[in-house]
Amino acid sequence: MTDPSASLSFFARFWLAWLCFWRCLVSREFAQAVLPTSRAYDAGQLKELPSGDTQAPPPVKTPAVQAPVAPAPLPPEREHASALSLLAMLQREGRFLDFVQENVAAFPDADVGAAARIVHEGCRKVVHQYLTLQPVLPQGEGDKVTVPPGFDAQRIRLTGNVAGEPPYGGTLRHHGWVTTEVKFPTVSPAMEPRVLAPAEVELA
């Protein structure tokens, strides 16, 4: 496509420049109409039209970028609702909180043992109902075991004389526990997770 200015002679362009000069001085509307074309020319964005006229390109609209809104932090009782729910279940089934809050030093061993049996039965029921557990190491306590290089320090804790580099040889004092399945119920937003056990009032 040819340059539209090539069809205008020097004198024609001179006359057009003179005419535009005076019209820009005396007419605000004419100056406002010419200004976008002048700016487009300075930016090298003039586009040729079939008629030979030029016009400024339409402005490019840049979509507004909205900054992501961080969610409001949950209060501690909501963030740890599952842990509080577990405590509530241990209390409901095994009176766990009643037992640990009691000063058992004042009671004879026989009474403490009888209470511990009840707590153990209820807490064991909760653990088996909502968690699946298995030992970290399959060996029995007291067996000789070898701790290999690159062992998981979260799964195996070394005690005693720890020196040098693995593999280590030692005696298993506790096989550890690992959870393989968690089946906690979902805590309803309508529930108050801080209430671990409601007060009980017997009416006459």
Rank of each mutant, 00 (worst) to 15 (best):
E200Y: 09
A12D: 06
A67E: 14
A190V: 03
I156A: 01
F96H: 07
A83Q: 10
V147M: 02
P50M: 02
N161G: 06
W18M: 11
L25N: 12
T2Y: 07
E29W: 07
P75I: 06
A110H: 04
S38T: 13
C123S: 14
K183W: 01
Y130P: 00
Q45D: 13
F14M: 10
F96P: 04
E102W: 10
G176T: 02
L86N: 05
P149G: 08
L131V: 00
S5L: 10
D3R: 10
Q32H: 12
W22G: 07
S9D: 00
D152H: 05
A43C: 11
P138T: 14
A110D: 13
V195D: 04
L25P: 04
E121V: 10
F30H: 15
Q129P: 00
R92T: 09
A190Y: 05
F99Y: 14
V126A: 01
N161T: 14
S38P: 09
Q66L: 09
P36M: 01
Q134I: 02
V65G: 03
A72R: 13
P68C: 03
V26H: 15
E93S: 11
P166C: 01
L19E: 15
H128Q: 14
R28Y: 15
T171E: 15
T180K: 01
L74K: 03
M1F: 12
A33Y: 06
G52S: 03
L137Q: 10
E165I: 13
S188C: 00
T37C: 07
E200P: 08
E202F: 11
C24N: 11
V34Y: 08
S38I: 09
W15L: 15
R173C: 11
P71Q: 05
V100S: 01
R173P: 01
L46W: 03
